[in-house]
Design a protein around this nucleic acid. Structure first.
Lengths: 200, 200
DNA sequence: ATAATATAACTAATACTATTAGTTATGGAG
DNA sequence: CTCCATAACTAATAGTATTAGTTATATTAT
């Protein structure tokens, strides 16, 4: 009964480790407790439920992603930040498929912490988009667009919805450029504004 | 012990109904069996496992979506098919959130039936894209791009990742046009080809 | 029409799951 | 050194999917 010095952070950390190793679908509190050298019920002194724990794991997944996305981002030319984020996003998802799956499969509790961390992933886009002369609303629209595209792509790819006939790397590159390229030229931006001014 | 005339199709149908009503996370074989007036174990005469059942539900979700997407698509001008599919996709996802969630949360078995039905959702795009003069590869790239964008958008929106400050309808409209509009003009298409010819 | 066979639905049991209540022992604060 | 909070425990509950084995029914062949 000696105390193991357990705390919430350590539990979340080891849980993430376990999910990364064995897969989200295989994860259970029993296995987690085993690895922590403790009985299952003891976890409840530090967490309130499995779904809360899952949400916390999703949050640290986002945090790690953000860390990886923004490391060495200072050297990079402002505009290339867009590409940097887009490429890094999929890279992380491919390197940590089970962790990313956790985000996808989180029960719909609408955890505000998770949502904030998810949104902050593309925060570095904003100054660049401002510099392009996009309005506040357009910045939101574009941000949602590229997040949707990135998230949708890695999700569909991981789930096997893309065939193998055509290289997925190329498709991703195509998609990212189709979204970003127009921002780079006066011509493309006028295109965007045109879109904005037209009715639905 | 009188036979209830049960079969796999009916089970899947009622399961989908149950998920639509009570939510994917609340779904269980017990509740399903109850509604079918049968004991849980009896279901196994018709299905082989829960995950197989879930995959089947995902398939009929895709089928219904395709049905809704392509109903009255003959009247529509060829090019507007693109918009028609994009708008219909999100419309279905919003009308059947729990059913769509099923697709998202399906265990990663890589069911080939599911994958085919998912891919066929955008099949009607192909002739239109061909008519635009896109190469075979570009058609695949574009198809993956718009599927990613649509799927990502409805998933993130449903999960609450978009704030309420800016209307999501507008964002979706923005996204769809940003992807499709370039195909409509010689200028935009040359833009696309340009993208294709450049290295990554 | 009757007998044989396949199988739908059943009961009962297994092995898991998360979660809660109540107990014991430990580490730190006063 | 004592008190108190609480970490870790044991034991139990209610739920899950799944399997094995039994019984009755419906269909098929004779």
């Amino acid at each position: 009964m000696a105390r193991k010095g357990l705390n919430t952070d350590r539990i979340v950390e080891v849980a993430a480790e376990l999910i990364a190793e064995r897969g989200f679908d295989q994860f259970s509190l029993r296995e987690l407790a085993d690895r922590l050298g403790v009985k299952t019920a003891s976890l409840y002194n530090h967490i309130s439920s499995l779904s809360e724990l899952t949400s916390n794991i999703g949050q640290i997944a986002f945090e790690r992603m953000a860390g990886q996305l923004y490391s060495g981002t200072e050297d990079v030319l402002p505009f290339d930040t867009l590409y940097h984020i887009a490429i890094g996003y999929r890279k992380f998802a491919k390197q940590n498929p089970e962790l990313y799956k956790t985000i996808v499969k989180i029960p719909s509790t609408g955890s505000s912490g998770l949502i904030e961390k998810g949104q902050s992933l593309v925060h570095n886009l904003y100054p660049v988009l401002e510099a392009c002369g996009l309005s506040e609303d357009d910045i939101i629209h574009f941000s949602r667009t590229i997040r949707s595209a990135m998230h949708g792509f890695v999700t569909l790819e991981e789930a096997g919805f893309f065939g193998t006939a055509v290289d997925a790397d190329e498709s991703y590159s195509y998609m990212v450029k189709a979204l970003i390229q127009p921002l780079k030229t006066e011509l493309g931006r006028s295109f965007l504004y045109n879109i904005k001014c037209k009715g639905s």
